[in-house]
């Protein structure tokens, strides 16, 4: 029974990942295909030439994750505090629905707001706040905003799950023992919901570090990320072994995230 699934996963997932690792140590042949001899050149190039973009991607992913946590926690808390189950369902549904619409469409929706002839510039100009349309697209800020917009639901849902499971008696006990709101939150509530926080943070960090669509559509040349580097090495004049080496670096970062997630994140139910 398990064999077809194991077979498919092995041949079309694990084996291809091994191929990527293998290809990253070969030289670039005709048409960008890997050929002997073996070499470390692609890794050297990855760190020498693209090191800056890799660090920048890490920065974007970490900032997006942190902002998602900062605004996602209050939202998850807010939803969990609603008394009626219907209100909780509706609020969760309103978080989930944008998440179910196509990612390209959602990204484009954000672009219509931010672009030069977009709604925000239209409003700012008409109100006389600015005299020239602001350049908001193709900036680092646009990429980070796009990442937050794209992955915020991943933060809200696991935190909501752990807040909902929080035993309110601990909170009452903390108040009864004289702790104020601030202290109760940091000493009782936050530690108890930490698994949800870690799960949400990793579920945002992992896809954002590997993002391709958002920086591609919103970043221009100034907001390139690892995903764009990898993509540019595939296709016409690409260099498959170099693309593979960059992918291996991305996989290692992702792997760290996955380990943290499965070790300390929310227990899967």
């Amino acid at each position: 029974m398990a064999l077809p699934g194991m077979g498919w996963l092995f041949i079309f997932f694990l084996l291809p990942v091994l191929f990527v690792i293998g290809a990253s140590f070969f030289s670039r042949g005709v048409g960008g295909v890997p050929t002997p001899p073996l070499t470390f050149d692609h890794y050297e190039r990855t760190f020498d030439v693209f090191g800056g973009i890799i660090w920048r991607s890490l920065g974007y992913a970490l900032i997006s994750t942190f902002v998602c946590l900062l605004i996602g926690y209050p939202v998850a808390w807010f939803i969990a505090q609603r008394r009626s189950p219907g209100a909780r369902m509706l609020l969760l549904f309103l978080v989930l629905l944008p998440f179910w619409t196509n990612f390209l469409v959602r990204t484009y929706a954000l672009i219509t707001i931010l672009q030069r002839e977009g709604l925000l510039n239209g409003i700012l100009l008409r109100m006389g706040i600015t005299s020239e349309p602001l350049q908001m697209m193709f900036t680092e800020g646009a990429v980070i905003l796009g990442l937050i917009y794209g992955y915020l639901p991943f933060m809200i849902l696991p935190i909501y799950a752990s807040v909902e499971r929080l035993d309110k008696r601990y909170v009452e006990a903390a108040f009864d023992l004289g702790a104020n709101d601030w202290r109760t939150f940091w000493r009782v509530i936050f530690p108890l919901t930490l698994p949800g926080v870690i799960a949400g943070s990793m579920l945002v960090f992992i896809p954002t570090i590997g993002a391709f669509v958002t920086p591609d559509l919103m970043g221009g040349t100034r907001g390139l990320m690892i995903g764009n580097l990898i993509q540019s090495q595939f296709g016409g004049r690409g260099n498959m072994p170099l693309g593979s080496a960059i992918s291996v670096v991305l996989l290692l970062i992702v792997f760290i995230g996955v380990i943290v997630y499965s070790r300390y994140g929310e227990e899967r139910r």
């Binding site: 084996l15 896809p207 391709f212």
Partner: peptide, 16 residues
């Protein structure tokens, strides 16, 4: 496959 970024699966299959 659920957790990793989709670009890693895409690239792996492209190479494969």
């Amino acid at each position: 496959p659920v957790v990793i970024p989709d670009i890693t699966l895409g690239v792996a299959l492209a190479v494969f």
